[in-house]
């Protein structure tokens, strides 16, 4: 039994050492592991001109302007995180999930005028899943406007019967 106990302590000790080393390393690298930077972070510390990075945030309601540039679809919209905002120019086809109020991640760089030139736009959807009827009912009842805010607390809608109006 004592040999087993000793092996157990060795394994536990190694695990503790490895775990804390990993935790320290991850804490140290915290800022480098971000997938995108937010508009307020750009406002606080201007990124270097001519260097590509990813910008993430929500598409501001009412800011989307679509046009055609030399036969290709082009769009302008503002990305916001509630405090800061950056206007984005993109030429190309936007993903299916793109809409005002949706999270997006755009790859590109800053232009001299302070706007962001995107070469690629990805849609970032949130963790809510609901049938179209339920979403429609929530919108009709005035409890949720998808272009301006998050859906209400999950417990208020995740057992709603599709097709029935939202009560209370």
């Amino acid at each position: 039994m004592t040999r087993k106990r000793r092996r157990l302590w060795i394994v536990l000790g190694c695990g503790l050492g490895l775990g804390s080393a990993t935790a320290l390393a991850l804490t140290a690298m915290r800022d480098n592991l971000v997938f995108f930077v937010s508009p307020s972070e750009i406002a606080a510390k201007a990124p270097a001109m001519g260097r590509d990075f990813r910008l993430g945030g929500l598409v501001e309601a009412g800011s989307l302007r679509r046009s055609t540039e030399q036969g290709r679809p082009s769009s302008r919209f503002r990305v916001t995180d509630g405090t800061g905002e950056v206007s984005v120019v993109f030429t190309g086809i936007l993903p299916d999930l793109f809409r005002e109020g949706q999270g997006v991640v755009a790859l590109g760089g800053m232009l001299p005028d302070g706007s962001f030139r995107a070469s690629e736009v990805l849609a970032k959807h949130d963790e809510t899943y609901m049938p179209p009827e339920v979403a429609e009912a929530l919108k009709k009842s005035g409890k949720w406007n998808p272009t301006t805010g998050k859906p209400p607390a999950a417990a208020t809608w995740n057992t709603l019967e599709p097709g029935k109006p939202v009560g209370g």
């Binding site: 963790e127 809510t128 609901m130 339920v134 999950a154 995740n158 057992t159």
Partner: peptide
């Protein structure tokens, strides 16, 4: 880019 979990130990699942 990946969304957070919809189902957790605490809180109502954010899924119908």
């Amino acid at each position: 880019l990946h969304q957070p979990a919809s189902i957790g130990l605490t809180g109502s699942p954010t899924m119908h």
